[in-house]
């Protein structure tokens, strides 16, 4: 093990788990109705982290760009699907749009960070590329799902307004522009709020 790497022991893991138990206790005592979903999420998280740990261990050892790019694709695809899944209203092609958008944005931003800012050598070192991509994807997932949700709710709520704009000769862009602006504002709230 690299001497600069951190060693997290069982006690520390137990402490992390205790934080979830606090949440469970709060949910149960205040009857917030979150107990079940918290439990499911915790179990899922443990399983996911175990799986990710094994896969990353394997990829780190390979030291080759292809598996890093491939796992990045899988991560971006999952984030894109998850972003669309968080909205209650769907349109045909929403998953494709979401995945393409998350993929393009995350690869450009992570690529710029690896090559232009962090200057990792070689660029595909998994211990940098994958966590960076993960952070970018986390933000994207929030931004995309908030903006998309706001947009879809708005389209349903302002249906008559949008349609009357179209009926008066607006292009699709003009008719949806106020809503697109509002949706982007909503999507930008998490990163732009201090």
């Amino acid at each position: 093990m690299n001497p600069r790497d951190l060693d997290i022991g069982n006690w520390q893991l137990g402490f992390a788990a205790a934080l979830i138990v606090v949440n469970l206790a709060l949910s149960a005592s205040l009857r917030l109705g979150l107990t079940r979903s918290l439990l499911v999420a915790s179990v899922r998280m443990v399983a996911q982290l175990l799986l990710v740990g094994f896969i990353l261990d394997y990829i780190f050892a390979l030291d080759h760009p292809l598996p890093v790019v491939l796992i990045g694709l899988v991560m971006a695809g999952l984030a894109g699907v998850a972003a669309a899944n968080r909205t209650t209203r769907r349109f045909p092609g929403i998953y494709l749009d979401s995945v393409l958008c998350v993929f393009a944005a995350s690869y450009v931003v992570t690529g710029a960070a690896l090559l232009g800012i962090v200057n990792v050598e070689p660029w595909y070192r998994a211990q940098y590329a994958i966590p960076l991509l993960g952070m970018v994807l986390g933000n994207l997932l929030n931004g995309v799902s908030l903006a998309l949700g706001r947009f879809m709710d708005g389209v349903a709520r302002d249906r008559d307004l949008i349609e009357s704009a179209l009926a008066l000769g607006a292009t699709r862009w003009e008719a949806a522009h106020p809503l697109i602006t509002a949706s982007l504002h909503t999507g930008m709230v998490p990163p732009s709020t201090p």
């Binding site: 307004l161 349609e163 009357s164 179209l166 009926a167 000769g169």
Partner: peptide, 15 residues
Amino acid sequence: PECRARVVYVMQRPA
């Protein structure tokens, strides 16, 4: 849009 600017549909419920 060119056509709809000339053939204007007025909805039953004003928006």
